[in-house]
């Protein structure tokens, strides 16, 4: 199973790299055109010489193969926008995004499950939790970010509106972005854990536990929750792609130099090489996260292992 999944990921990346490379050919301006626009003294001969130097005059399949072989050998090329090797940009950006998305996911899961449990165990709170969940899912992430900036950075002045600390951990720079991303995702977890817990609480073994005199707290968290948690975990696994997208938007709103912002800046700045490598890396990490969540689910649920 694991081997198949890894092969699937490799195949998906190969197809994606080809499609994206082909698409980049449609992006406005090839690097040489940009260079001409930046330096009017460049002549047509110079342009032709530069194209030949960078291999841009070669046919498309040949360029793709050369680029893909380079990637496989660990040559990520150079970023025109940041004037640095791409490999040097990826590490810090990936770390920043993992810190952001990881803390947001943890908080979203904890709060979402708590809200779901509240809704399932106290039916009077269900409409309120439901309304919060519907609104949370309908709220655009970037709007939430702007509102938090207006409230906590502009009006109250408690937290920075964006950016990262120049030195040190800079945890207070993380608060608003993590809150934004966590609130955007907890709604789905609240909805699903409420539905899943409600369904589980009607099972016969729950009635047995209650008949035995188990306190409601034990019934909810020890008997119902482990069973109800599996569908929520499945949603979390499917959510990896959405989290990557949410991180892109959040990083853009808060000017955090993570993978999403790197990809966005590369796309906006016509830095095709950086854009391609960043996209492939984001896709790889997303698929690995989905795989990890699937494996965790399999480890927790013996019924899945037998299939």
């Amino acid at each position: 199973m694991l081997l198949t999944r890894v092969l699937q990921i490799a195949l998906t990346l190969a197809i994606l790299s080809f499609c994206a490379f082909a698409l980049i050919a449609l992006m406005p301006g090839d690097p040489i055109e940009v260079a001409i626009a930046g330096d009017p003294r460049l002549t047509a001969e110079d342009a032709a010489r530069l194209r030949a130097l960078h291999g841009l005059d070669r046919p498309f399949p040949e360029r793709y193969l050369a680029w893909a072989t380079g990637l496989l050998q660990g040559e990520f090329g150079y970023s025109r926008l940041f004037a640095q090797p791409v490999a040097a940009l990826l590490g810090p950006a990936l770390l920043s995004t993992v810190a952001l998305a990881g803390s947001a996911l943890t908080i979203a899961l904890a709060l979402g499950i708590a809200l779901g449990a509240l809704s399932a165990s106290r039916p009077r709170t269900a409409p309120a939790v439901d309304a919060i969940a519907v609104m949370g899912q309908a709220m655009p992430t970037f709007w939430l970010g702007i509102l938090l900036i207006i409230a906590f950075a502009v009006t109250l002045g408690w937290l920075p509106a964006g950016g990262v600390a120049e030195a040190g951990a800079g945890l207070h720079y993380l608060v608003l972005p993590v809150a934004t991303l966590a609130i955007a995702h907890l709604a789905a977890y609240a909805r699903h854990s409420a539905a899943s817990l409600e369904a589980t609480l009607t099972e016969p073994w729950i009635r047995t536990a209650r008949a035995r005199g188990a306190p409601e707290r034990i019934v909810l968290w020890r008997h119902a929750f482990p069973n109800a948690a599996l569908p929520v975990l499945q949603i979390a696994a499917l959510d990896a792609g959405a989290l990557a997208g949410g991180a892109l938007v959040t990083e853009t709103v808060f000017a955090r130099p993570g993978m999403g912002k790197l990809l966005y800046d590369a796309v906006m700045g016509n830095d095709t090489n950086l854009a391609l490598v960043a996209l492939l890396l984001v896709a790889l990490v997303t698929m690995l996260a989905t795989l990890a969540a699937d494996l965790a689910q399999r480890a927790l649920d013996p019924r899945l292992r037998e299939r």
């Binding site: 959405a242 997208g245 892109l248 996209l279």
Partner: peptide, 13 residues
């Protein structure tokens, strides 16, 4: 399997 928004950004550009 792919992250939709990063792809949308690339496509839209």
């Amino acid at each position: 399997a792919l992250p939709a928004l990063p792809l949308l950004v690339l496509l839209a550009a």
